[in-house]
């Protein structure tokens, strides 16, 4: 029981402290600019572009796709920076020196970003309703809420994997930004997946977000929860696989770093 309590305390403290540390140098204005206005402007840009392409029809397709994709701001950038932050701040050596439960420590880094990311999607969808008239009257809102949560967790799974990569490369912002923008193509946020070439469709299927965006579109169009259960199950599965891959990499890096004494250059 004591071990469980200790692990939960570690999870929670790691969660809160890493999140606070990430935004410690931020002011509220920077948070609003980076986490609310930037994603909103991105959504408006792609919605207008899509609207121009489709002659004004199908606006919902672009609003919903881009609103859900906004979760990647927290899932990819936030989580990666929380994991990588330990290396940049020089605290990685101390973490590897503690007997703390690695799983709690590792997955705890993503927890606040799940909440933050899901909140961002809700804001984006609200803007979608206010600015572009997206109609939620037929939507099963609790199912949509679950979809947002599952998709955010799944995207954070990829973020955890990317975070591990940030421990071995100095070019983490290049990798992060590239992954974030590639998701705009491959997740189906802006292009219907079935119109992509076969190899791109196959790649889309192994990414988080793809099924989450599809589920959100079905639900907002009036679809039932039962219709999206298979999609959400796969979305969660993909996120878990990425998260575990990240965790195993993290453990492997620790072993390598300790064996080679190359902690600072891991």
């Amino acid at each position: 029981m004591k071990t469980i309590n200790n692990n939960l305390r570690l999870f929670w403290q790691g969660t809160v402290l890493s999140y606070v540390a990430l935004f410690a140098w931020f002011r509220p204005v920077t948070y609003i600019a980076s986490k609310i206005l930037m994603p909103l402007a991105q959504m408006i840009f792609f919605t207008f572009l899509g609207s121009y392409a489709s002659g004004g029809s199908n606006v919902d397709f672009y609003v919903i796709g881009n609103a859900i994709q906004i979760t990647a701001v927290s899932g990819i950038f936030g989580v990666t920076m929380s994991i990588g932050g330990d290396r940049w701040a020089g605290t990685l050596a101390y973490l590897f020196g503690t007997p703390a439960n690695r799983m709690m420590m590792f997955f705890g880094r993503a927890f606040m970003h799940v909440i933050d990311g899901a909140f961002g999607v809700v804001i984006a969808l609200t803007w979608g309703a206010l600015l572009f008239g997206v109609d939620f009257s037929q939507t099963n809102l609790s199912a949509l809420g679950l979809t947002i949560l599952v998709t955010t967790i799944s995207t954070c799974g990829l973020g955890l994997l990317m975070g591990c990569l940030s421990l071995i490369t100095a070019n983490v912002m290049f990798v992060n930004n590239t992954v974030y923008f590639l998701l705009l193509i491959f997740s189906g946020a802006n292009i219907a997946i079935d119109t992509l070439p076969n190899w791109m469709q196959a790649f889309s299927q192994i990414l988080p977000l793809t099924r989450g965006i599809a589920s959100a579109r079905i639900l907002i169009a009036g679809g039932s929860f039962a219709e999206v259960v298979p999609l959400l199950t796969s979305e969660a599965g993909i996120g878990i696989i990425y998260g575990w891959l990240g965790y195993f990499l993290f453990k492997w890096f620790e072993v390598q770093a300790k064996r080679k004494g190359s902690l600072e250059t891991v």
Binding site: L49, A53, M173, F174, N177, T178, F181, L184, N190, I191
Partner: peptide, 26 residues
């Protein structure tokens, strides 16, 4: 600087791919 390469090369190319796909019916 990899971030600069991203800003001048990768991001515009990704936006071009997106726009070419989205506007192809035009």
């Amino acid at each position: 600087d990899s971030f600069i390469l991203f800003a001048i090369l990768v991001q515009p190319m990704i936006i071009a791919i997106l726009a070419l796909f989205m506007l192809r019916d035009l």
